[in-house]
Nucleic acid binder design. Structure first.
Lengths: 160, 160
DNA sequence: TTATAGTTGACTGAAATAGTAGGGCATCCG
DNA sequence: CGGATGCCCTACTATTTCAGTCAACTATAA
C-alpha cells in the first residue's frame, strides 16, 4: 500500500478541475500554476485519468480538461486508483497466498485495514470536498495569487 | 504514507513473539522459520523494535526476544511506527506547509485519512489478534510444520 | 571453551517515484 | 493560411526506498 505525491496530486488536480468547472475546460497550465505541480507531470497523470474515464479533453486554444461525470459521482478512491496507487494493504492483493501459497499470520488484519481505507475514501466525493470551508478558503487564496501573477505579467508586457 | 513488507513483517513477527511467549524468549531463528522472513532482515527490524522499547533481548543460548510489555498494551500502530513506516497520509507531516509554506488544497483530506488509519490500528492490540480464530488456526498450522521440519532434521542426523 | 544468539554496519540489486525533455497532433483565431 | 494554444506520447534520468545479504563482533549459558 502506498499513498505518495502521485495520488495526492491526482486528487488535488481533480479538485481544482471541479472548482473551476463553471468557466469551461481547465488547462493543465492553469492547474500547474495554481497547485504548484509540474506541467509535464500533470500530463502523465491526466493521461491515466482520461484512460480511466474520469476526465475528457478538449483540444486547441481555450481547451483543457473537464470532468466526465458530475462532481457528486466521482469519489476520491477511484481517483487514487486511476493513477495506479493501490490502497490495498495486503501483500498478496487480497488473494491469501502471502506465505508459500497460504495466508500469512496477519492476512486478515491487512484485509480489514484495506476495507477501512477504501470505505473511507470511496465515501468522499469531489462535491463533498468543494463544500468544505477550508477548501473554499484555500481555493480563493490560490485564485487571487494566480490573478496577481497575470496582472504582473500584463504590466511588464505593457512596459516593453 | 506507505505500508510495505517492512511494517507487515514487524507486526507478524511481534505477533509470533506474543503467540510463543509462554515458553520463554523466542529466537529470531524460530520466527524466521515459522514466518518465512529472512533472519538478517528480522535482525534489522528487531533492532528498531528494541530501540522503541517494544521488545527486550536475552543473549546467549536459549535466548531471544520477549515483549517488554503485556500483549494487551501493545497495539499495531506503534509496531508499524517503530520500524519507520509512517502511516501519515499527508505530504507535510501534518505541518500544513505542503504548498509553498501554506496548506495545499487537499491537506485536510489527508489529515482525516491519517486519523482514520491511526485510530483503526491503534485500537488493535496483539492480544486482540491472538484471540482471533483465523490467527489461532494459522499459528497452529505453522507450529506443526516447524515441528515436522525438526523431526526431519533429527532423523537425518541419526542416519549419519 | 564453544556454540548460541543478539548487535552493528556496510553494502547491493531492483523497483518506484518524481520528475524532465522533446517530439507530435488537433483546433481555434486573426 | 499559419501560428499560437493546449493536449498527446515516448523516452530518459536522478533519487530514494525496499528488501535483503554479508561479515565481524559481543554476551552468555552449558
Amino acid at each position: 500500500m502506498r499513498l505518495t505525491t502521485k495520488g495526492r496530486y491526482a486528487v488535488t488536480a481533480m479538485l481544482d478541475l471541479a472548482l473551476h468547472a463553471s468557466r469551461g475546460p481547465v488547462s493543465l497550465n492553469d492547474i500547474s500554476g495554481r497547485q504548484g505541480i509540474s506541467l509535464s507531470y500533470l500530463e502523465q497523470l491526466f493521461a491515466k485519468l482520461r484512460r480511466s474515464g474520469l476526465v475528457a479533453s478538449v483540444r486547441g486554444p481555450g481547451g483543457g480538461y473537464r470532468l466526465s461525470r458530475e462532481d457528486t459521482s466521482i469519489n476520491v478512491a477511484e481517483i487514487v486508483d486511476a493513477v495506479n496507487e493501490s490502497m490495498d494493504a495486503t501483500r498478496c492483493n487480497r488473494k491469501g497466498d502471502c506465505q508459500e501459497g497460504l495466508e500469512c499470520l496477519t492476512h486478515h488484519l491487512w484485509l480489514d485495514l484495506s476495507d477501512q481505507i477504501h470505505n473511507f475514501l470511496s465515501d468522499i466525493t469531489l462535491n463533498d470536498l468543494i463544500e468544505r470551508r477550508e477548501i473554499q478558503a484555500t481555493a480563493a487564496r490560490q485564485d487571487e495569487r494566480a490573478n496577481s501573477r497575470i496582472d504582473l505579467l500584463l504590466s511588464s508586457e505593457g512596459s516593453n
